[in-house]
Design a protein around this nucleic acid. Sequence first.
DNA 1: TGACGCATGTAAAACGTTACATGATTTG
DNA 2: CAAATCATGTAACGTTTTACATGCGTCA
Lengths: 176, 176
Amino acid sequence: MNIQNVILGFLSEEPMSGYDIKRKMEVTVAHFFDASFGAIYPALRRMEKDGYVKKEVIQQEGKPNKNLYVITSKGQEEFQQYMESPINPTIMRSDFLIRLFFGKFTKEENILQWMENEKEDVKRDLESLLEVQSNSPNTDKYKKITLEYGLEYSKMKIKLLDTQIKFLREEYKEKF
Amino acid sequence: MNIQNVILGFLSEEPMSGYDIKRKMEVTVAHFFDASFGAIYPALRRMEKDGYVKKEVIQQEGKPNKNLYVITSKGQEEFQQYMESPINPTIMRSDFLIRLFFGKFTKEENILQWMENEKEDVKRDLESLLEVQSNSPNTDKYKKITLEYGLEYSKMKIKLLDTQIKFLREEYKEKF
DNA sequence: TGACGCATGTAAAACGTTACATGATTTG
DNA sequence: CAAATCATGTAACGTTTTACATGCGTCA
């Protein structure tokens, strides 16, 4: 999977600009896929050159023009091929967990601070996912599963962090 | 966080070769950090050039020589600086979830197959983490938390996949 | 008036994967 | 006998981030 495949997916649903795609990603797949403008715009140009999408310039008043991209039949074929290809393994890269893993090389205060921060971050993630959920009751069942995945994952993280923070605090107190 | 920081972390524990580091990563941090030989070896060379590590060549019989890397005090300082720096956000990239998200563009059989495969993969991950857990009862408490994280995450995924697979199968049956 | 949202884009740099090359020993 | 393990390394390639550039409208 690369950005191109994901963009083709979004354009299979409706024509969008690079900006639209980025916004859409943020409220739908951000918890398991992320892309920057610097990756999206060049990808769209390439895809136009390769005939996967067609550009339509929309004149707007008071706002910059919009480059609306429409998927072509060649693009649809390409996307279908992607959907039939083998699934790539999930990539995860967690600085937080690396820090924890090497936790014995730093002060316990640092670690507790990291864990509190992480908990707050995850709580915000959870809230934003809950908001998305209540704002989109009519999404299809598969999208609902990916949302559910995000919700369960967040809840699991909060629970685990809560438990472990308490353990560490108990231990910390016992030093006196 | 980059490979260099992680390597410095491992070398803070004991001198290792590039090969050792890779092997160690596989049984400790693979569920939240991954690096290939093509990333590790060049990193070690750079780090030696920059004075973060020292190379010691170990002659071995019947096996290729080993380049054992030892962290220097400059390397220790660098690692401490990393440990005090702000934590980078976690990166996740899941082809599986992207496929699910765009599930309506493919056949339900495909989706069920993906989910079954994913479940089996996660089950294997869980088993390997459980094995690591029973093979290393004396690891420090922070490492234990990262292991616990992996275990809980795997269990969560299996549970969710199980539930959702059953739902989809029920629905599927009702079509008759 | 400064920041933010809308909107697009490029170029450089950083980072990493993949594939290839080498070669001995051990294991099934 | 083939495959896996041990062990290191390079080069090509691909991808992505970051930073920069532009510019209007709105809102506090």
